[in-house]
Amino acid sequence: MIYTNELKFKYPKENTLSFKDISLLAGQQTLIKGVSGSGKTTLLHLLSGVLTPESGSIIINDIHLEQLSNQQKDRFRAKNIGIIFQRNLFIKSLSMLENMLLAQRIAGNNTDKEILEEILRELDISNLSGKIPHHLSQGEQQRFSIARALVNRPKVILADEPTSSLDDVNCVKFTELLKEVCEKFRVTLVIATHDSRLEQAFNHIVELNHKK
């Protein structure tokens, strides 16, 4: 489902980061572990097409990501990849429902309220969809983050340090929920984190420990 090969990336004026090859199966739930600065976020951004690799190849769902133009990558990301950020990001002038619909529209999909309702029901946040981001708790916002990552029926969800601001109880709750919905909607899940609390919940762990 997701393969990388000889992946290298170079920031301007810095050393080249090289990543070890990874290969993930469809539906697999994977933890990418590494200390800060090991390139976890860089890898996620490479996988999502936000960054372009210096060399090497990324194949997601049989598509060579490095061969796509920037615009094609934007479209590919919108259709195939759901992203959960470290912090909860929403357009604060729009209601949660509008935020969700916006994600669908940007992906060029017709707004599909049925799937949206199903997702919100699954995450137990249907009754909150009329509110604006500002009026929700962190936990509620995080559920909407998951919901938004799912609205376009992506193949993959990439999550970048999603639990760093959560306490132990919420960390477990969140991880369980995320794993559950990804299983239900048959989405491959990749979490990049340095949070060791997550290790026990995942069978497949990729360790990034190279230092430049």
Binding site: N70, Q71, D74, I83
Partner: peptide, 18 residues
């Protein structure tokens, strides 16, 4: 002030021109 909203839109798949 809302540059992160823009970043969000872009990661959601909005192109640069959008």
């Amino acid at each position: 002030r809302e540059i992160h909203e823009l970043a969000l839109l872009r990661t959601l798949g909005a192109t640069k021109s959008k």
